[in-house]
Write a protein that binds this DNA or RNA. Structure first.
Lengths: 238, 238
DNA sequence: CGACAAGTTGATGTTACTCAAAAGTGGTGG
DNA sequence: CCACCACTTTTGAGTAACATCAACTTGTCG
């Protein structure tokens, strides 16, 4: 990873962009100086309200956040997850409204990222690729909720997180952090926490994956990938 | 609607962009000339394969298409619908891969749309807003599949289509085309066609909406909107 | 008229939800 | 160090929503 980025505490998150496109010294400088502006949000707090004017473009430096929709009767659906390195409000037009609320699942630190200048092709490319990944995972979330059962949804989701964390160097092939409660899992996968619990037990019993204490341990990656026809996004990584 | 656009047979679809941002004569000309390039796809045929290099930016002129994912065992999930006026492959980077397959639900006519030049702010704006709408509706599809039951999913979906068709001047407040089979409905809403059928019967019995012969007739828009907490996207329309 | 797709119906099965409570976990303050 | 609290996980029993399977009906078009 680049020197510039390594000098920052949350180098992993910052490094994601340079894995999506090669950035020159100028662009890394822009990232570094914008990255000095930070904002910390406690767990369970809202980071951005739905429909409010979107904030400056920013990036998750650490912690886990989500876009979610909450219904009158209390039902909540988590629409997408935001992991370290993920961007917020980058591709949107000026004065755009946030399409969904964003809230912190754990303590979250955001930093500002620069709006790219016309000549900063690396930065533009990295943002575009990041956006394409967001889109890819959003389509995947739709397929998951629409046509996979609880067992498959959990497997598919875990594999997605594994891939996304790999892009920021968090965790290994079969072992990575997953600091979500079963309740949160339910809201993410359109299930109740009770059913999530039972399905996780089944996966443990089958010795396929063990989710405990905020850490995921995959016991048979090949098999898990086969169950859900796992594919990687078609986005080239540098 | 603008003269330039009216001169074309599928003026409704072309007019969508000029409702999303005001376009100057130069931009309308660009749209007109690009729009001469057309491509017709028969119902049930694939328009674009997943993972193939994406085609030129284009727009649906007429007909209904969808992005979908099909699983080994034949399960199909429709990820999003593409209606007249909707754009395909506009925001993506050069050489980007199509994130999903796209196929025609009815006979579909596409036309090319221009890549905007740096000074064509109206065009850029319109594309950006169109993209923001796509994103908004994709999040909505997630919430629908994750937390609404069959009854609510159908209502929510119908109201979405109503809003989207209104943007291209197709249909009225309570009456618009909906040329999808109950099978397709099922694939879209994560249900079986049998369950869709029974739920549609219930909605007819309750005198809330009547879906028949490819036309949707809403009998009590207020009530329908209340059931699913219907909201419009926060995207300004010119 | 016949063929094929779409819509409808009934009977039955399964997945996942609901409600309720017990057991485990971690943090805090006395 | 322990008692207490809040939160999370786990368990059980009963239920509702939706799926499955199979047949029958209707409509459309050549």
């Amino acid at each position: 990873m680049n020197r510039h980025l390594q000098s920052f505490p949350d180098a992993a998150a910052m490094g994601r962009l340079s894995r999506l496109a090669s950035l020159d010294a100028d662009e890394l400088d822009a990232l570094s100086s914008a990255g000095a502006t930070r904002r910390k949000t406690a767990a369970h707090r809202e980071i951005m309200a739905e429909g409010k004017r979107a904030a400056e473009p920013s990036m998750v430096l650490s912690g886990w956040a989500c876009r979610s929709r909450i219904f009158r009767d209390g039902r909540r659906q988590i629409l997408s997850l935001l992991l370290p390195g993920d961007l917020i409000g980058v591709c949107e037009q000026r004065n755009a409204m946030a399409p969904t609320a964003i809230s912190a699942l754990t303590e979250v630190v955001l930093c500002a990222v620069p709006r790219p200048l016309p000549h900063q092709h690396g930065l533009i490319d990295a943002y575009t690729r990041s956006g394409a990944l967001d889109e890819f995972y959003l389509y995947r979330q739709v397929a998951r909720l629409g046509r996979l059962n609880a067992y498959e949804r959990i497997i598919d989701f875990i594999l997605e997180i594994r891939d996304r964390l790999a892009l920021v160097g968090m965790g290994t092939d079969d072992n990575f952090p997953l600091p979500l409660t079963q309740e949160t899992f339910g809201d993410l996968l359109g299930l109740t926490s009770v059913h999530v619990n039972r399905t996780l037990q089944r996966l443990r019993r089958e010795n396929l994956l063990d989710l405990r204490g905020g850490v995921a341990r995959l016991k048979d990656v090949e098999h898990l990938m086969h169950v859900v026809e796992h594919r990687l996004p078609n986005i080239a990584v540098v």
